[in-house]
Simulated assay, not measured.
Amino acid sequence: MMPQLFTVLVRRPEHRPIRIWVPVLPVALVFSPLLVLAALVAVVACVIYRISVPLAFSSGWRFFCALSGTRVDVHEGRSTVLVSIR
């Protein structure tokens, strides 16, 4: 199942935490013209490097669907960024 929501939490010292929820499907629909262009570039790259186009796209889709449940924490100094994919 593809991820539905990206949650970003930014904690900074002496400031309130900032939490942002990003739904995946509406963002993908807004950026669909760029996604079509990126797909065309990927097809050209696959042809140049002699990679199977269906195999490359199916591997990319499987990787994207496997992102559900991923959590990334970044600590830099006293600031923290947490990205959660559901």
Rank of each mutant, 00 (worst) to 15 (best):
residue 42 A to Y: 04
residue 34 L to I: 01
residue 67 L to H: 06
residue 69 G to Y: 04
residue 73 D to G: 02
residue 52 S to R: 06
residue 7 T to W: 00
residue 63 F to M: 10
residue 43 V to F: 03
residue 12 R to C: 03
residue 86 R to S: 15
residue 70 T to E: 12
residue 63 F to P: 04
residue 7 T to V: 11
residue 8 V to E: 05
residue 76 E to I: 11
residue 53 V to T: 09
residue 1 M to V: 09
residue 43 V to Y: 05
residue 60 G to F: 05
residue 41 V to G: 10
residue 46 C to G: 08
residue 7 T to S: 06
residue 82 L to T: 07
residue 49 Y to E: 15
residue 60 G to S: 06
residue 76 E to P: 03
residue 82 L to M: 12
residue 12 R to Q: 09
residue 13 P to Q: 14
residue 41 V to L: 12
residue 19 R to V: 13
residue 28 A to N: 01
residue 72 V to T: 15
residue 83 V to S: 13
residue 21 W to G: 10
residue 15 H to F: 14
residue 5 L to P: 00
residue 67 L to R: 11
residue 71 R to N: 12
residue 41 V to R: 14
residue 58 S to R: 03
residue 23 P to E: 01
residue 77 G to N: 12
residue 72 V to S: 13
residue 36 V to S: 08
residue 74 V to Y: 11
residue 17 P to F: 00
residue 67 L to S: 05
residue 82 L to I: 08
residue 46 C to W: 02
residue 62 R to E: 06
residue 46 C to E: 07
residue 7 T to E: 08
residue 3 P to L: 00
residue 17 P to N: 00
residue 10 V to K: 09
residue 33 P to C: 03
residue 57 F to E: 03
residue 39 A to G: 13
residue 86 R to D: 15
residue 8 V to K: 04
residue 11 R to W: 02
residue 77 G to P: 07
residue 62 R to I: 10
residue 66 A to R: 14
residue 63 F to D: 12
residue 54 P to V: 06
residue 63 F to G: 06
residue 18 I to F: 02
residue 60 G to L: 10
residue 65 C to W: 03
residue 22 V to H: 01
residue 83 V to E: 10
residue 66 A to L: 11
residue 81 V to I: 13
residue 4 Q to W: 01
residue 8 V to N: 01
residue 78 R to L: 15
residue 76 E to S: 12
residue 11 R to T: 03
residue 21 W to F: 13
residue 74 V to K: 12
residue 51 I to E: 08
residue 36 V to W: 08
residue 26 P to R: 00
residue 55 L to C: 08
residue 18 I to V: 02
residue 33 P to I: 09
residue 45 A to Y: 07
residue 5 L to A: 04
residue 56 A to D: 02
residue 23 P to F: 00
residue 19 R to S: 09
residue 70 T to R: 14
residue 62 R to P: 05
residue 75 H to S: 15
residue 28 A to S: 03
residue 10 V to H: 06
residue 41 V to W: 10
residue 80 T to K: 08
residue 82 L to V: 13
residue 55 L to D: 14
residue 24 V to R: 02
residue 23 P to M: 01
residue 63 F to C: 06
residue 79 S to A: 15
residue 66 A to I: 06
residue 72 V to K: 05
residue 53 V to R: 05
residue 45 A to W: 10
residue 12 R to S: 11
residue 15 H to S: 14
residue 56 A to Y: 03
residue 58 S to Q: 07
residue 2 M to A: 06
residue 55 L to R: 13
residue 29 L to P: 00
residue 17 P to E: 00
residue 4 Q to E: 14
residue 82 L to Y: 03
residue 12 R to D: 04
residue 54 P to G: 10
residue 63 F to V: 11
residue 64 F to H: 03
residue 7 T to Q: 04
residue 40 L to H: 08
residue 16 R to A: 04
residue 49 Y to H: 14
residue 57 F to P: 00
residue 79 S to Y: 07
residue 18 I to C: 01
residue 68 S to A: 15
residue 13 P to R: 13
residue 82 L to S: 14
residue 82 L to H: 14
residue 71 R to P: 03
residue 85 I to T: 07
residue 16 R to V: 02
residue 37 L to W: 10
residue 13 P to L: 12
residue 58 S to G: 02
residue 27 V to A: 08
residue 79 S to P: 09
residue 6 F to S: 01
residue 32 S to Y: 07
